[in-house]
Amino acid sequence: MRNSGFDVLLSLNNLRRLMLGLGGTLEIAAVSVAVSVILGVLCGFAMMSKNRAVYALFRVYLEAFRIVPILVWLFLFFFGSAIVFGANLEGWFVSVLVFSLWGTAEMGDLVRGTVLSIPAHQWQSAEAIGLTPWQVRRFVIIPQTLRRIAPSAINLVTRMVKTTSLVVFVGVTDILRVGKQIIEFNMMKNPMASFWIYGFIFLIYFLICYPISRFSKKLEEKWSY
């Protein structure tokens, strides 16, 4: 018997499982984003030190996360740490670790680039009115950095949310994986299940990422000068 297959979304069990999967995704994304923002800002300011070795080290760290796919990093920590050091890390922990390392590197680079893009005379005129180095940053440089960095930082956040779909490969159950499980279970009696489930997941991702990017647009408009 064929029907539209929509009833796959009416099952409370299915919805509950999808939401649990979504919870897993969001938890990893939220923790990693929080860690990345805090460490990324520190990292970005540290990178402006005149010490070339420090800068080179950061550069290598950043490029390593850009060149090597995130999936490889996940495997490296998930399987590598177990085989080489005998440390059996949880998939959840590995995911947060890799996403935080990646986010910190990208965030650090954003902060560094943005602070350097603030004209030298902004620093100088702040110094010229007798502000201390910390006050110069606190009242003049950081507020302008925040405004300039908001669009690209939010872009990074949405990229991180989307990339969390890779965590299934280290055994974490996210919303996409739950979706696939439900689709496969219904394969024979409901071939349209994949359409509805993926449509639903699409909607969920949209509902998460769209407000974030709307928010960034609003900030951009409000803070433009």
Partner: peptide
Amino acid sequence: RRTMVKFFGTTILLGMIVLAGAILTGT
């Protein structure tokens, strides 16, 4: 700066190859 990046890059790459090798041979 470029040569330094290259140097560190090579080091990291080698390190990863060693790690990958260790994974394949497994202990």
